[in-house]
Design a protein around this nucleic acid. Structure first.
Lengths: 223, 223, 223, 223
DNA sequence: CATGAATGAGCCTTCATTCAT
DNA sequence: AATGAATGAAGGCTCATTCAT
């Protein structure tokens, strides 16, 4: 099963690596910008600090990105796609339909994969989450992507498991919200709020998965 | 039971209202600042816009708050106390210990109350959440308050319910994280990300509570 | 006759002096801006130089004028009104109709008065002329003012003198163009191109007036 | 008579075409620079816009012209020569002396020819007029050329016609100023200020010539 | 107390110019 | 010869903060 996950990943990567080739300087700028934006937030970051950290003249930034905002978007927008990419793949539904016998298998596959992804791209995800409240276009893009693609793919899956009695018959959006909250909550605490603590990652993830599964399960409920 | 909740609230209010008396101008400044900070974020807000919205001269703000940052803190710091207040009350444990026979009762009482509170103070909560990543002191204050007080109060309660078999024997911090995620996740979607949608609040809250309860319940677990 | 001219001037001044009261700093800024704009042109002038010359912080300029362009316009726009003011006065036509028996008397009165005015406000007039080509709004404003007001007033006068045979029957616009060219040409050479030369002002003005008069006269023309 | 004019033109062209051979790219740069300078003025034009409009790399401009200013001068300086060329031709005086019986013939020949020339090179003339106030060297070059050459040639001609009674005995410089103003005034209005209006060119030019002739004529003057 | 004019550091951005390719 | 990425000085403008009134 995880083989197939690997396949997805492979496909995903095709999306990202085909970005136009960046010069080394451009990469340094992006990297510095990610660092600074993540730490101070977009509004409190100065292009001069970014330039300095990238060991580049300030003007060089503006040769590659017309405005500071464009720099932000060039960092954050692709992340949106990438973050949601697996749910957008065309035959995602088919694959799952065929293969995943239980919600647990499905959940486990997706969650582990996405957590891994976020871990890898943490600073950019941080920026994305931190800036969404201040940039209506970002928020809109994000909601559009989620509403237009993710919901479309996941709803039938949820409903299938509701139909065969594995998941409680609550609105699928609610089920997704609860699932997402648990995952994002873990990531936020683990990597943003308390990254310095020692974490038993595997255990925490396992507990989180169990929490979701039981939280949505139809196992007899105490009256 | 909610009578007792009311008592808490009463006690809470004592904390806030006894703040030094604010002039009307000062209140207008606070209100304007909350509005602007919530919408644009601290860094992108200008004191002049706040002054304008408060119908006050620019200098007046600095008569009451030495710096822009102090203005932020004067808004956000009390909120931290208030937000966590019920968990900090001295005889919270005793009260609960005596009264709450089930985790559900406890959960329901706390959640409903806190959601109500957040709803009422939404803009300030927004600011708090949005600014925590950018202000180490804020983050520290927040964690200190949570770690030093909330955990201290809630851990015994969780453990009591674990001891009597109502909650799965996972680390209490994990249980709290999962509970908190579900609640914050609801609030974030309901009031920050998708406030314009029509929400069936009661249902959603009920589903959320059930989700937490089942997620942490010890009802026989598959495999 | 020149008494009446004086009256006009009086009326004109009412227009300008009633401008909102300017602080001393604001006057210094205006004066410095006029100096710098006139010398280097708007585009090549820097607000920092203006600030320095006005002995004012750069920010102070922007407290009084939102943008550099607004500063330019606040200098140039009133000048447009002032420059054309006498031709815009309501009973200009009536007055003349009654009083001026010859085109010469009319010409002499207007020219002398306007030359005096330009001499007094030379730098601003310089700026106006220099910037009109680069600012479509300025050009438009100028043409509107001329077309809408000046032409309206002067055309009947020209036509009256054409009717009684003092001026050749060419299109009134042409007559005005030729008259204006001679005057502006004098001013441009006298004050902008060759201000350092020694000029016999009275003689030159006299020659210019004669040139216009004879240029437009109906004295027998060689076949 | 216009045959002789043609001869002058022929001679003029020798001056210009013998310029060092320009590559096609260089011509594109010049053409683009003329376009941009004329529209926005030198100071507000950017070399990058010129490069873009010339479909040339930014660096290419600086390979041919050491600085932006040199580019300006390379456009404007030759124009100065060309504009005044006919008056600078060596045997100009002799030719005229022999041929032109009346000031009118002379005027007509020169004016028509120069207007034609300006019409053809309008953008460069615009640049010249617009930039002279801001570049002392330009102003100086211009005045030197006029004073040193044009005045030298034209003064004797004016004086000859004054001696034989065709022109009023005013200072020759004044006569030239008045003549020039009328011509430049026409050109400025026709091609710079109101180019979009419909103009009866022939009539206007004829009126302008008549205006100059009568303005300077010695026909009996009203006491 | 309140005001708002004044400040000047700092921000984002533009631009003429250079230089390695 | 031509390119265009890189530069860094300079520009217009904003803003938190101060202070005389």
């Amino acid at each position: 099963m995880s083989d197939q996950m690997e396949l997805w990943l492979q496909e995903q990567l095709k999306f990202y690596d085909e970005d136009e080739k960046k010069t080394e300087k451009q990469l340094r700028i992006l990297s510095a910008a990610i660092e600074v934006f993540a730490e101070k937030g977009y509004a409190a970051s100065s292009t001069s600090e970014i330039a300095q950290k990238a060991a580049v003249a300030e003007g060089t930034i503006f040769r590659h990105y017309k405005t500071k905002k464009e720099l932000l978007l060039s960092i954050v927008a692709p992340m949106m796609t990438k973050l949601l990419a697996p749910f957008v793949l065309r035959d995602f539904t088919k694959v799952l339909d065929a293969d995943y016998a239980s919600y647990e298998q499905f959940l486990r596959a997706v969650i582990v994969n996405r957590i891994e992804f976020v871990k890898k791209h943490l600073p950019v995800v941080k920026i994305l989450l931190q800036e969404i409240p201040f940039h209506p276009e970002l928020k809109e893009q994000f909601l559009d992507a989620v509403a237009g693609q993710v919901l479309g793919r996941l709803t039938p899956i949820i409903e299938k498991f509701q139909a065969n009695g594995q998941i409680v018959p609550i609105p699928s959006k609610t089920a997704l919200r609860l699932t997402g909250s648990a995952i994002l909550g873990f990531l936020a605490m683990r990597y943003m709020l308390l990254p310095h603590l020692e974490w038993e990652d595997e255990q925490e993830i396992e507990h989180t998965i169990q929490f979701i599964l039981y939280g949505l399960s139809t196992s007899e409920r105490p009256g």
